[in-house]
Design a protein around this nucleic acid. Structure first.
Lengths: 205, 205
DNA sequence: ACTGGCATACCAACCAGTATGTATGGACCG
DNA sequence: CGGTCCATACATACTGGTTGGTATGCCAGT
């Protein structure tokens, strides 16, 4: 019988390790025994907290992947008068902190989207909702930027937000296969250049 | 012992059915028995032509996926003085011929890239080479378009080609999870709008 | 003494791969 | 021209390892 307590050290550890395993092997390729081994936790503990592999996967999504997107990609861009600058800042953070290994594994959200959307309705709904939240947030930020005169008036915030998120995920997705840091840098620069084209140039620069 | 003949009805059928299975379930999730059943072919025949599941997967990539990218996305854009128009045409073809089912399964190349790049070096090399071929082709087409005065001079063909392919794959990747045709249309329109921004407006228009 | 929080042993299904058999058609020989 | 041989092209049955899931037991804290 699943437990009601929201948090537990063991439960958190399991989700962390499972997140890593899913990030590398995908959901279908994720191996429970490998997770258990790597977390030094037994199967009894796992099934004490999660009713199934699927439940564990959903928990990884709800409590890790969604949080990652919100904390690293969405929140820094909200509540800013200068969304373009904020997005550039997020890209810069990624640029500075990413190593080849993290790039090689790609975006956990995008990975799961490609793998599980056609196979599991529960995953699909979660993924769709999170992408929508992300794009809604960017659209609102762009609209705010427009009203503050920092973002060009002639773009549609919704369409542009969709395009930005798509291009971002596309860049990370392609970067996975190249395994060359300079290629990844070049892709990010391309996004950066596009973002810059949305900005209203202030005289001072 | 594998066979030497380049083509065979049974072999072709197997690759076709396997391509469909991999498209839906991913490579790891693809089930040989399901492929066999759906193709009405026995396991003996499969292992007569392919030494392993991996060999079948590579064949699907080399003989179906690579061909799809070249025929549908790359070739129509090459050898044209007007690459932007050609790309818009390709998008239009996709727009007209795609149904919800095909959109839901996404781009086979992108699917495989996200799933297999970190797991199998053979797949990774193939995927990387194909993306590079695609982007090189687009870059050449853009450069040609510049020399003919149809594409803006102030863009870098290589960077722009990378960005276009990334944005395209990103759009298809995100569209998978939405399962709403109008969302997909909107994403394609966003790409379309970006492409248009690269074009040199001719007076006649 | 009872509940939460595990630990251990086990199971049954699934699935890639294999061992072995067979039919068919062409090459080669007499 | 007829028979033998042999490679190709499958077909069938089976296996061994993997893997998600379960049954059961134990133990510490309240």
């Amino acid at each position: 019988m699943p437990v009601r307590t929201a948090s537990s050290k063991t439960r958190d550890l399991l989700i962390d390790v499972a997140a890593g395993e899913i990030h590398r092997h995908g959901y279908q390729g994720a191996n429970l025994d490998r997770i258990l081994n790597s977390a030094s936790v037994t199967k009894g503990a796992l099934y004490h907290y999660f009713g199934s592999k699927q439940a564990l996967g959903y928990a990884v999504f709800d409590e890790r992947i969604a949080k990652l997107i919100r904390d690293r990609w969405l929140s820094p861009v909200m509540m800013e008068g200068d969304p373009i600058g904020a997005m550039q800042g997020v890209l810069q953070v990624f640029h500075d902190t990413s190593d080849l290994d993290s790039v090689e594994l790609g975006c956990p959200l995008n990975n799961l989207a490609q793998e599980m959307s056609p196979l599991d309705e529960g995953f699909r709904e979660r993924i769709d909702a999170l992408f929508e939240e992300w794009e809604r947030g960017f659209a609102a930020a762009l609209a705010l930027g427009q009203s503050k005169g920092r973002v060009k008036r002639d773009i549609d915030p919704e369409t542009t937000a969709m395009f930005i998120v798509s291009a971002l995920e596309g860049c990370f997705g392609l970067a996975k296969s190249s395994r060359k840091m300079n290629v990844i840098r070049a892709r990010l620069n391309a996004v950066s250049g596009y973002l810059e084209s949305l900005r209203v140039k202030t005289k001072g620069r």
